[in-house]
Design a binder for these strands. Sequence first.
DNA 1: TTCTTTTTTTGAACATGTTCAAAATTGAAA
DNA 2: TTTCAATTTTGAACATGTTCAAAAAAAGAA
Lengths: 225, 225
Amino acid sequence: MPRQPTPKSEATRARILSAALDVFRKRGFAEATMREIAATAGVAVGAAYYYFDSKDAFVMAFYDHAQTEMFPALDRVLTESRTLEQRLRGLIELKFQTFAPNRALMAALSAHIDPGYPLSPFSAATAPIRERDIAFFARAVADSGVRLPPSILPYLPRLLWFYQMGLMLYWVYDRSPRQANTHLLFEKTMRMMLFALKFSGLPLLRPLFRPAGELLKALYGDIRA
Amino acid sequence: MPRQPTPKSEATRARILSAALDVFRKRGFAEATMREIAATAGVAVGAAYYYFDSKDAFVMAFYDHAQTEMFPALDRVLTESRTLEQRLRGLIELKFQTFAPNRALMAALSAHIDPGYPLSPFSAATAPIRERDIAFFARAVADSGVRLPPSILPYLPRLLWFYQMGLMLYWVYDRSPRQANTHLLFEKTMRMMLFALKFSGLPLLRPLFRPAGELLKALYGDIRA
DNA sequence: TTCTTTTTTTGAACATGTTCAAAATTGAAA
DNA sequence: TTTCAATTTTGAACATGTTCAAAAAAAGAA
C-alpha cells in the first residue's frame, strides 16, 4: 500500500475497485474470481492484492465509499426534519435507496457477524465506520423531543443503529417483490417503537424499562446523557 | 451415499465425523483442513466427501445429532414444568449446556444467515430440523396459561424460537467470562418478555399488538390457533 | 544525466475445499 | 466357487483465494 497516495496509484486503485464491482454485479460475489477482476482491470492478480487486502475488502471499500457519498444527503434529512419518526424514515429509506443497486453485494458483508472477523459490522476494525454511522442516529434523537427514562436514553442511538442493521439484514435476503416484506417490517415495527417510546414514562411500564436499563448498562458500560 | 446404510458404512461415517469434530476442537473450524480430518480418520479425502457433502456439512451433522440426543431431556423439561417461564428457561439452558463443549463450532453454522444457503438455519433445506425445534416451543406454550391476543398467539412458538436463535447467536460470539453477558441478556429480556405477555390483553396496548399481528400475518401467512 | 531508493507490478507458487475417473471391495446370484 | 453389479475408497487433478520473491517503473539525490 502506498504511504502517500499519488494520483496515479489512486487511479489504479479506483480502476481495480470499479472492475471488481463490475464483475460482482455480473457474476455475483461468490462466483466472481480474483483473476477475472484483475483481467478486467487490465492488471495482474498481485496488483489487486497490493491495493486490497482480500476479496472481501472490495465490499468494505464499496461500503466505505457509499457511506461517504451518502453524507450530504443524510445531513439534509436530519436538518430538514424534526420528529424522530421523520428522521428515522428519512435515514433508513435513504440507505435502502443508496444500496439498492448493489443489494446482492451487501450480502457478502452481512455474511460475517463474527465480531472477531475484521470485516464484520461489529468488529473492532470497523468501529470508526460504525461510530460515524451511530452519530447520525444520535443527531436524529437530539432535539427531537423523545422522552425516555434516563437509564435508557443515552443508549438510544446505538439501539436505533442496531434496529437499522437488523432491517438491512432482512432486506439483503428479502426475496419478496420489490422487497415489500422489508418495507412492511419497517412500517409496522416503526409504529410499535414509536408507541412504546410515547408511553415509556408511565410508571406502569417500569418493570419493562428497568431491566432494559440494567442490561444496557452492563453490556455497553455507563454512558451519560 | 449408500441407499441402505450397512453397519459398516455407518461406522465409517461415524469415524469420519468424530475425526472431524476432534480436528475442529483442536484447530478451530476455519483452520481445520479436510486433509487432516481424513488423515485422522485414516481415510482418503475422497472418502470424507463420499459421506459428507462439504466441510460445513460436518457441522450440520453434528447439530442434527446433538438435537436428537437432546430430545429426551427436552421432553423431560416440558413435562416436569408448567409455566412458560420455567419451560423456556429449561429448554434454552439445556441447549446452552449441550452445545457448550462445541460452542466455537456453532459459529460456523451461525455464519450463514443467507436463507439461500442450504446450511442456513433459515433455509428450505433445514426446514425439518427447524420445525422439529419449533414444535418444542409450541409444547412449551400449550397449557402454560399464556394469554395473548389471538392475532399473535399462533405465532408465539415461532417467535420464541427466533428469540432463542438470537440468544444463541449472541452466545456463540460472547467473549465475556463464562458467557456472563449472554446469561444477563437472557435474564433481563426474559423478564421483559414475561411482563409484556402479562399485560398483552390491556386495551391500552392494542396499538402495540395490532401492527404486530398484521405483520406476522403478512410474513408468515394465516395460522390458526 | 546517472545512480540509488522507493513504489508498483508481475506471475509463478502455495494451500485448501472439492471433484471425479479409476481401483478395490463387498454382496448376492448363478 | 465364479461372476457381475453395486458400494466404497483412493488420490491425483482442479479451481480459486492468497503470498511472495523478483522485475519493472517511478521518484529523488548526486
